[in-house]
Simulated assay, not measured.
Amino acid sequence: MLKYKLYQDNRSNAQHKGNWYAHMNLDGTMDLDELAAHMSDHGTPYSKGVICGVLNDMVGCIKELVLEGNAVKLDNLAIFSVGIESKPANTKEEFNARTHITGYKLRARATGGSINARLSQLASINQMGEYSHDEAETAENSQDANNGE
């Protein structure tokens, strides 16, 4: 069950200032060890330790492969790749990778059974209430940071 809270966008520069939006309310974050424990509880013959080892190796390999310029597809989950952030150069000749490439991002694009349309069919959702003032400020700061990307 997905849970959300309502918040009002009160940012001074908001296009829809005063409007209300849903914001996900996460129950927590599971690390690889907890994921391995969860997986081992699903009737698999593999222990939590074996699963955790495989997952840790998978993470390392995905990092290695995307940093080599590959996209890595985990069927029905996501395609992982690296994206580039850059600032403009006036001409092609002026472009210099050392000064114009400003950063890199790990991208994950939904695929297969995880595409947005399919998630919309599978998701069930429940309202948890409204954000408190502190939560609304955190959401506002998060939106401001995301809009700056």
Rank of each mutant, 00 (worst) to 15 (best):
L2W: 02
K3H: 10
Y4A: 04
Y4G: 01
K5C: 03
L6K: 07
L6M: 13
L6I: 14
Q8S: 13
Q8F: 04
D9M: 09
D9T: 09
D9G: 03
N10H: 04
N10A: 06
N10G: 02
S12T: 13
A14P: 02
A14C: 02
A14Q: 04
A14N: 03
H16V: 03
N19I: 01
W20T: 12
Y21V: 02
A22L: 10
M24G: 00
M24Q: 00
M24E: 00
N25V: 12
G28K: 02
M30K: 14
D31S: 06
E34D: 11
L35H: 04
L35I: 15
A37L: 08
A37K: 13
M39A: 06
G43C: 05
T44F: 03
P45A: 04
S47P: 06
G49C: 00
V50S: 09
I51N: 01
C52K: 15
C52H: 15
V54T: 02
N56D: 08
V59Q: 11
V59F: 06
G60C: 00
C61P: 00
I62E: 01
E64F: 06
E64P: 00
V66M: 10
L67F: 13
E68S: 12
G69P: 07
N70A: 11
N70Q: 14
A71S: 14
A71D: 09
L74T: 12
D75Y: 05
D75I: 08
I79Y: 01
V82K: 08
V82D: 02
E85S: 12
K87P: 02
T91N: 11
F95Q: 11
N96W: 01
T99R: 11
T99M: 05
T99Q: 10
H100L: 08
H100C: 11
T102C: 08
G103C: 09
A108F: 12
G112S: 07
S114H: 14
I115G: 02
N116P: 04
N116H: 08
A117K: 15
A117L: 09
R118D: 13
R118C: 05
L119W: 06
S120R: 14
S120I: 11
Q121D: 14
Q121R: 11
A123W: 00
I125E: 01
I125R: 05
Q127E: 10
G129S: 04
G129D: 03
E130A: 04
E130H: 06
S132G: 13
S132I: 03
S132D: 07
H133G: 05
H133P: 03
E137C: 05
E137I: 14
N141D: 12
S142N: 12
D144E: 14
D144I: 15
N146E: 01
